[in-house]
């Protein structure tokens, strides 16, 4: 209750202290795995397996050596995986966003024949197990000679019905018809109106959809797992999964991969964490509208 007197002068009263403690516990829960990974990626194999405190550093802190091993193992394959993931996330994210913005705007602002039908079909597609598509897509792509190429990963990630839905809702609410009509009255064509008037208004949602699509591509596992067999095309998720398989299977031989897997997991999350935190101001706006209406 001392907290009461201390914060009495503030606008927000003391009652939130227990809430903040509760929140504190939750934060600890959400951070524990990160802490474990940070600590244990500094250890070598004996340090990892040989007992000792699991939540604190061993005597030998070996980030430099582990990092060197991570980026040189198997000809520096890990660095390639990170680059691949970046490529897939950027290409898939940007492509999906362009398609979603256009389609969302089209659905929201034009009453064309088949609009209602195609919109409901698209919403129904949200329910299709994304993984269910992997099997037939694989067979189709292998017929086209596309399996085991970067396109096998990028093309399917262009499809983002949720992005279309989000853009549709946002365009409907944030782009008033009156402004569009005014632009048209001024003699601007439809395309020009879209780029000059509508697009700037839709910007927060564009950032949101871009981030969500990029994250979806970055996180993709099942699809590239099935599509790719050349390990130099793997995204980092599949690569680490394969390492875990190698480390778990017999015969793995002379190198212990476990410390590389832990450090690899840590390094792989850094780009996304940075992207999220630097961009968070820009993209929450898009979500609020998408969620509310």
């Amino acid at each position: 209750m001392t907290a009461r007197s201390r914060t009495a002068g503030r606008q927000r009263p003391q009652r939130h202290f227990p809430l903040q403690v509760l929140l504190g516990f939750l934060v600890v829960y959400f951070l524990v795995p990160f802490w474990w990974v940070i600590v244990n990626s500094s250890k070598d194999a004996p340090g990892l397996f040989g007992g000792g405190n699991t939540m604190w550093f061993a005597d030998r802190i070996d980030y430099v050596e582990n990092l060197t091993r991570l980026f040189t193992y198997d000809g520096g394959i890990y660095g390639r995986w990170i680059l691949n993931s970046t490529l897939y996330a950027l290409a898939g994210g940007v492509g999906a966003t362009i398609l979603s913005v256009m389609a969302g705007y089209g659905f929201a602002k034009y009453r064309f024949a088949g609009r209602r039908f195609s919109f409901s079909v698209m919403l129904g597609a949200l329910m299709v197990p994304a993984t269910a598509l992997v099997i037939p897509t694989f067979i189709m792509f292998s017929g086209l000679g596309l399996t085991n190429t970067i396109w096998a990963v990028i093309l399917p990630s262009l499809l983002n019905p949720f992005g279309v839905y989000l853009m549709h809702v946002y365009a409907r609410d944030a782009v008033p018809d009156e402004i569009l009509d005014a632009a048209r009255a001024d003699g601007a064509g439809e395309i020009r109106t879209f780029f000059r008037v509508a697009f700037p208004l839709m910007r927060p949602a564009v950032v949101t959809v871009l981030l969500l699509s990029a994250v979806a591509s970055w996180n993709n596992y099942f699809l590239p797992l099935a599509m790719l067999s050349d390990n130099r095309l793997f995204p980092v998720t599949v690569g680490l999964g394969v390492w875990q398989g190698v480390a778990s299977a017999n015969n793995a031989g002379s190198t212990s991969l476990w410390s590389l897997i832990i450090l690899g997991a840590l390094v792989s999350v850094i780009p996304l964490v940075i992207a999220f935190f630097t961009l968070q101001r820009h993209w929450r706006g898009g979500l609020s509208v998408g969620g509310l209406r």
Partner: peptide, 9 residues
Amino acid sequence: MGWLFVGPF
């Protein structure tokens, strides 16, 4: 125009 915008998707 509607189909033009929705078409690529």
